[in-house]
Nucleic acid binder design. Structure first.
Length: 216
DNA sequence: CTCCCGATAT
DNA sequence: ATATCAGGAG
């Protein structure tokens, strides 16, 4: 397990590697962001952007999403995986916004997680990006990177990973750290073919050293 | 825990 | 061919 100083080192190296890491889901308001993040489950953000380019032209408000048949909305997001449950959740979410939040996206995480199709990870992303609330959303990348480096334990749940990161990382760095860990995981510490040989963090990475030994 | 599920990289 | 992709609900 990494100590505080080593974790600090990880954050600094990631900051150097990805100085302007930020969310890559295209949106122009909180409502579009919620839809985009909901769609991004088990799917690349690149594909989400391709779909939302047309989607956001056609649907501007919660009422717009509710004005069409479910099958039509399914069709509009078909190229994204899990499209049936996502389409259903979008309509349910829109109805909830109209019924309980005056048609506006709520800004608190407690309210966000109540929305259909919005779990803890999505709520954290929306709260962080749209409402500037410090958060560390733990997605597959953040979880994998944290566990490989040894910032947390292998069997930790995503909630435990989130709590550990919030304890070890200064609050005012939560949001940037979240984005940098995602970039680090997406482009360098990749799930399939991690770039261990050329990794500046190899010396303090438990999993990295294990992989190098196996490679030799 | 399983299921949802198409696109993409390897 | 198959693992993986900014997960969440039942």
């Amino acid at each position: 397990m990494l100590n505080q100083k080593q974790i600090r080192q990880c954050l600094d190296v990631m900051a150097e590697m990805f100085p302007d890491a930020k969310g890559e889901l295209e949106h122009s308001n909180p409502f579009e962001l919620v839809i985009a993040v909901l769609l991004s489950a088990q799917c690349t953000d690149k594909l989400v952007n391709k779909v939302t380019a047309d989607l956001f032209q056609k649907y501007k408000t919660p009422e717009d999403y509710l004005s069409v048949e479910l099958s039509e909305l399914e069709n509009d997001i078909r190229s994204i995986g899990l499209y049936r449950s996502k389409a259903k959740n979008i309509q349910k979410l829109c109805q909830m916004l109209l019924d309980e939040y005056n048609g506006e996206v709520p800004s608190s995480k407690e309210d966000l997680v109540k929305l259909a199709g919005v779990g803890r990870k999505t709520a954290n992303v929306v709260a962080s990006i749209a409402f500037n609330e410090p958060s560390i959303a733990v997605d597959t990348h953040v979880e994998r990177v944290s566990k490989r480096l040894g910032i947390c334990k292998w069997k930790d749940s995503v909630l435990e990973v989130e709590n550990t990161l919030m304890r070890k990382v200064p609050r005012d760095e939560w949001s940037v750290t979240h984005h940098r860990m995602i970039f680090f995981g997406r482009y360098h510490c990749k799930a399939r073919n991690p770039q261990c040989p050329e990794c500046p963090l190899l010396e303090l990475c438990r999993e990295g050293k294990k992989r190098m030994k196996k490679l030799a």
